[in-house]
Simulated scan of single mutants.
Amino acid sequence: MDHDATRTGILDAAEELFYAQGIQTVRMDAVRSASGVTLRRLYQYFPSKGELVEAYLLRRDGRWREELAAHVVGAAAGPGGRILAVFDWLADWFAQPDFRGCAFVNAFGELGATAPEVAAAARHHKDEFAAYLAGLAEAAGAPPATGAHLTLLAEGAITAAAIRGDATPAAEAKGAARVLLRAAGVQGVEV
């Protein structure tokens, strides 16, 4: 394997294990085994578990936000429709059989108090998601606070879906977003 393929394989294995089982329960030997590299090779790429966790979170952040943005652009016409498309994407994500909630909230809950890099990665992800929603709200002509309100709806839906084990919080949050946007005078959010 070349350098990039080996690193990708390690991160793929780490992501699957960390997200499914939790970061603290997964030992580096399990990542080694799942990725098919030697323990020595694993530590050449990631000298500590903390570095592997940080790389996993940063990569997941980029992919998550790219997938969301691609869906929103491809799924909706008009600024109001793009905002509502966020909740459709969340519904699809929640319906995945491996959905275990927000990886960043999960990681922060496990390690945020003791691992500054985990806390920073979680904050970065949440800040970027909030900024994305604020940008969508601004493009739709909504008042400035609307982005923060949409963020709370989306974050609440993510948490509720993880706890309840079903995708209905996305539709519930989308309904609340529709009411919020109509009250703000945003076009393209009719029932």
Rank of each mutant, 00 (worst) to 15 (best):
W64G: 05
W93K: 11
L136T: 05
G141E: 05
G78R: 15
P79R: 12
A76S: 04
V86K: 01
V179H: 11
L133W: 00
A119S: 12
V186H: 02
A113C: 15
G101C: 03
A85N: 00
V191K: 15
G101T: 07
T168V: 14
T114E: 13
F129D: 06
D98V: 05
A154K: 08
E172W: 02
A140H: 05
L150I: 08
E66P: 09
G141T: 01
A115K: 12
P79Q: 14
H149C: 07
A113S: 15
G80N: 08
G188W: 05
A69T: 02
E66T: 10
L181C: 01
P169Q: 03
A161R: 00
L136W: 00
R164C: 11
W89M: 09
A103S: 09
A131T: 01
G109T: 09
E172T: 12
E138L: 10
L152P: 04
L133C: 00
V179R: 05
A121T: 03
G147D: 01
T114M: 06
A162H: 01
L136I: 04
G81S: 14
Y132K: 06
E190V: 12
R123Q: 14
F129R: 08
A139N: 11
T146R: 01
W64A: 13
A137Q: 07
Y132D: 05
A176E: 10
F87P: 01
F99G: 04
K174P: 02
D127G: 13
A167N: 15
R164V: 12
P169R: 02
F87L: 02
F104P: 10
A70S: 03
P116H: 05
L90S: 14
V86G: 03
A70M: 11
A154E: 08
R65I: 13
G135Y: 02
G109F: 11
G78A: 07
A121W: 01
H149S: 10
G185M: 04
F104L: 03
A148G: 09
E67L: 07
H125K: 14
Y132E: 04
G141N: 12
R82M: 03
T168W: 11
E67C: 08
G81F: 12
I83M: 10
H125R: 07
A140P: 06
